[in-house]
Amino acid sequence: MTAPHRRPRLAVWKFASCDGCQLSLLDCEDELLAVAGAIDIAYFPEATRGAVSGHYDLSLVEGSITTAHDAERIRQVRGRSARLVTIGACATSGGIQALRNFADIRDFTAAVYARPDYISTLATSTPIAGHVAVDFELRGCPVNKRQLLEVICAFLAGRRPAVAAHSVCMECKLKGNLCVMVAHGTACLGPVTHAGCGALCPAYHRGCYGCYGPQETPNTASLGGSLRALGMDERALHRIYRTFNANAEAFRCESDRHAD
């Protein structure tokens, strides 16, 4: 995809999100100059002002679709982008704001806004892949900056990103972390959660919160038996999956199996 006569053009797009994943790119402090040198960052509202129209070799998309306007805008972005990569839990599963999918959005707008009639929003928060074709999904809340760099480097080189879809458990074992579930009796979503964070929470003796969404073949029903044995009741099993990836299918289905 890299044209020899010019630097590849990168755009970073924001939809419904907290900007945290875009900040992961800015957080690449040491590497950012290299990124800026290797690619033409043509559109990146978090870092620069001034939109550039035209076409992009690689678009990174943060955020979910929560308005009719955004549902149309993502189609325009797709049309301008040779490759489109979604970054973060919002873009890949709908994000924390997908909790609206389980309730009546009118109750939320009435509770939050003085004039809810000014608010024009969809009843659901949905991932980008539900609206347009996506070339690669990078998981995480927020995404891991090393993985983000890896994805950018891989797309520039025309190779497959080395981003594993297995469990967080494998990251724990690679790092030599103890298993908080087996050795401490701490509830942990690591066995059903997608790797990528570097097993951050278990490294600090906390159970995994599932920030990276479901691993490639999650068995949440079986894990539920162990979580119950560690003292989680139905409500806890319902709520533990209702976080950043509440709308990811495996987490949504498992949450639905348990009463609130």
Binding site: L174, Q215, S222
Partner: peptide, 13 residues
């Protein structure tokens, strides 16, 4: 397979 988490812990240890 109904019980297995395919988490890979057995092979890592």
């Amino acid at each position: 397979a109904d019980r297995c988490l395919s988490c890979g812990n057995c092979t890592m240890v």
